[in-house]
């Protein structure tokens, strides 16, 4: 009897050591870009994909871009971050531009590279570049539409009460607008929302 108990104790201790050693090991795994990995109520990379897909599909299915045949030129001004998190919204605009370009329905003016373009054009016009290959002046295309947006968030925490977990509700909305630069009319606007609840324990070891 005593022997059996001793064996059980040894096995238990060995299992405990193995378990604790496994806990100390660094593990990695590659996550697919379309896989949803969410740790808390905050903004995650998979959210970007979701909101970009929803808005690009709306933009391409509704007027004016949905019915245009002349590949209108668009300029992207940033998406303003009005959330309570440090979120780089340039990633959202980059993805929207990429998806719209891939559709072949619109063209984009490169706003972010304007200074570099001007510098390169100046260099080519400076007399060092062969006149037959240098770019011509005043040939840049003016944008017809301007794309702007705002990312907002509202956070709600569970009121103080006796509980072992704290619940937080997070609401995100991305609003996009397409403005006709000639008339300053908003020709298209849409928004997409993500609402997420997370529960965090109050007590840990």
């Amino acid at each position: 009897m005593a022997d059996t108990m001793m064996k059980c104790f040894v096995y238990f201790m060995m299992a405990l050591i193995v378990a604790s050693m496994a806990g100390c090991t660094v593990t990695t795994r590659t996550v697919a870009p379309d896989e949803e990995v969410i740790y808390d109520e905050g903004y995650h990379f998979s959210d970007k994909k979701k909101i970009v897909n929803a808005l690009v599909s709306s933009l391409l299915s509704k007027p004016p871009l949905g019915f245009s045949t002349d590949r209108p030129v668009v300029i992207v001004y940033g998406v303003a971050n009005r959330t309570s998190e440090h979120i780089s919204t340039s990633g959202i605009t980059d993805d929207i531009r990429k998806e719209l370009l891939a559709s072949g329905r619109v063209r984009f003016v490169n706003k972010t590279q304007r200074d570099n373009i001007a510098e390169e054009v100046d260099y080519q016009q400076g007399g060092r570049v062969n006149t037959t290959t240098r770019v011509k002046l005043a040939q840049q295309v003016g944008a017809k539409y301007m794309l702007t947006g705002t990312l907002r968030s509202i956070e709600k925490k569970q009121p103080r009460q006796v509980r072992i977990k704290k619940r937080t509700l997070m609401y995100y909305s991305l609003n996009l607008e397409l403005t006709d630069l000639e008339t300053s009319l908003i020709e298209w606007a849409d928004s997409t929302e993500i609402i997420r609840e997370a529960a965090k324990p109050f007590i840990g070891w």
Binding site: H86, K166, K200, P201, F202, I203, G204, W205
Partner: peptide
């Protein structure tokens, strides 16, 4: 200070030990 801010969020859990 952003690290401090992140740490504050982690510290919301009360350590029994």
């Amino acid at each position: 200070l952003l690290q401090a801010s992140l740490l504050m969020a982690e510290q919301e859990v009360i350590s029994i030990s």
